[in-house]
Write a protein that binds this DNA or RNA. Structure first.
Lengths: 106, 106
DNA sequence: CATTAATATTCGCTATTGCTAATATAATAG
DNA sequence: CTATTATATTAGCAATAGCGAATATTAATG
């Protein structure tokens, strides 16, 4: 494997912390399907408004998601599509049966 | 995208927490190249023995790594190779220049 | 058995995280 | 301007995480 410079490991570990939370990971997964506004995320997750807002702020400050104001609503979207690959890898680990691996030697 | 059951999101977020730390992520990356014993990890990371041991224990309890005793040494290895894919996705996000994507439409 | 090397565990402390309740801001409607 | 809706921010607290120092355990060696 490639050597990763120390400061990149620092960045990456901080990025991981930003999604290493049940609610924040749920939000990330939801946003993989496209942008959503806060109250849509509230309904989808069942989270309290203040709590959700704080988590969204944290993810935004860590560069995971971006926001865009439209009228009185704020839409959030994933900043880098590569997070989709990471979530996919996570699925392979925690719900392999969902990934339905067609061909692979054990 | 596929819907992920809530309990799987819980598991996955806990798994992420287990690697969302600079030292633990470093250990994960090191172990991607193969098993290592504790003092090798100490040298490679520069971490204090007690501290490293605590982090290894945490990762082991979370099922990220496994250990095997050989003599008075304990070797650690990654429990699921799919963590390599996840680290790869992380590299795409935090050090894209290292991934040297050959062909890809922007 | 005594010593040393490798690793794990416990303790005490500080720092960080996560949550709720309350309050603030901003846009829109009337 | 007032009220309402959508979202953000702040404060205060409980829970968790992370660290070093000290101690315990386990295996090898003499």
């Amino acid at each position: 494997m490639e050597e990763i410079p120390k400061d990149k490991v620092t960045d990456a570990s901080q990025g991981l912390r930003a999604i290493a939370h049940e609610l924040r990971l749920s939000v990330l997964c939801l946003l993989l399907d496209g942008p959503m506004c806060v109250h849509e995320l509230m309904e989808a997750t069942g989270a309290a408004q203040s709590n959700l807002s704080q988590h969204l702020t944290k993810m935004r400050l860590m560069g995971i998601i971006k926001n865009e104001k439209r009228g009185q609503q704020v839409f959030y979207r994933i900043a880098n599509p590569a997070w989709g690959d990471l979530v996919h890898a996570l699925k392979q680990i925690y719900c392999p049966e969902m990934c339905a691996i067609s061909g692979g030697d054990v």
